[in-house]
Amino acid sequence: MKNKRKMFVIIKTILLSLFVLAIIFVTIKYAPYVTELVKTPDRFKDLLASYGHVSIIVFLGFQIMQVIIAAISGEPVQIAGGYVYGMFLGSVYSVIGIALGSAIAFSISRFLGYSLIRTFISQEKLEKFNFLINNPKSEIIMFVLFLLPGMPKDLLTYIAGLTPINPVIFLIISTVARFPALLVTSYIGANMQKGNYIIVAVVSVIALILFIMSLFTKDRIVAFLHKIKHKDN
Rank of each mutant, 00 (worst) to 15 (best):
1 M>T: 10
2 K>H: 13
5 R>H: 12
7 M>W: 03
8 F>M: 13
9 V>N: 14
9 V>T: 13
13 T>C: 07
18 L>K: 09
19 F>G: 12
20 V>G: 07
21 L>Q: 05
22 A>C: 12
23 I>W: 06
24 I>Y: 13
26 V>Q: 03
27 T>E: 11
30 Y>Q: 09
32 P>Q: 06
32 P>C: 03
35 T>V: 06
35 T>N: 13
37 L>A: 04
43 R>L: 13
48 L>C: 07
54 V>Y: 09
54 V>K: 07
55 S>E: 14
56 I>A: 09
57 I>S: 12
57 I>K: 12
60 L>G: 05
61 G>E: 05
62 F>M: 10
65 M>N: 11
71 A>I: 09
73 S>M: 12
77 V>M: 04
78 Q>K: 08
79 I>S: 04
80 A>P: 13
80 A>N: 07
81 G>Y: 02
82 G>C: 01
84 V>Y: 15
86 G>W: 13
86 G>Q: 06
86 G>S: 07
87 M>P: 04
87 M>I: 14
89 L>Y: 11
89 L>T: 06
91 S>P: 11
93 Y>R: 04
95 V>W: 07
98 I>M: 13
99 A>D: 00
102 S>N: 07
108 I>A: 09
112 L>A: 06
113 G>H: 07
115 S>E: 15
115 S>K: 15
117 I>F: 05
119 T>C: 08
121 I>H: 05
121 I>N: 03
123 Q>W: 01
127 E>R: 14
128 K>S: 08
129 F>C: 08
130 N>L: 13
130 N>G: 12
131 F>D: 01
133 I>R: 06
135 N>R: 06
136 P>E: 09
139 E>R: 08
141 I>D: 00
143 F>N: 07
143 F>L: 13
143 F>Q: 04
148 L>T: 00
152 P>G: 02
152 P>R: 00
153 K>P: 04
158 Y>F: 14
158 Y>M: 11
158 Y>P: 00
160 A>L: 03
161 G>C: 05
163 T>A: 10
165 I>H: 02
166 N>E: 10
166 N>C: 09
168 V>M: 11
170 F>Y: 15
173 I>S: 02
177 A>V: 03
177 A>C: 11
178 R>T: 10
180 P>W: 00
180 P>L: 00
182 L>E: 03
191 N>F: 07
191 N>E: 08
192 M>P: 08
194 K>R: 14
194 K>M: 15
196 N>K: 11
199 I>C: 02
199 I>K: 11
203 V>M: 10
207 A>N: 03
209 I>T: 02
210 L>D: 00
211 F>I: 11
215 L>K: 04
216 F>Y: 15
220 R>E: 01
225 L>E: 02
231 K>P: 00
232 D>Y: 06
233 N>C: 07
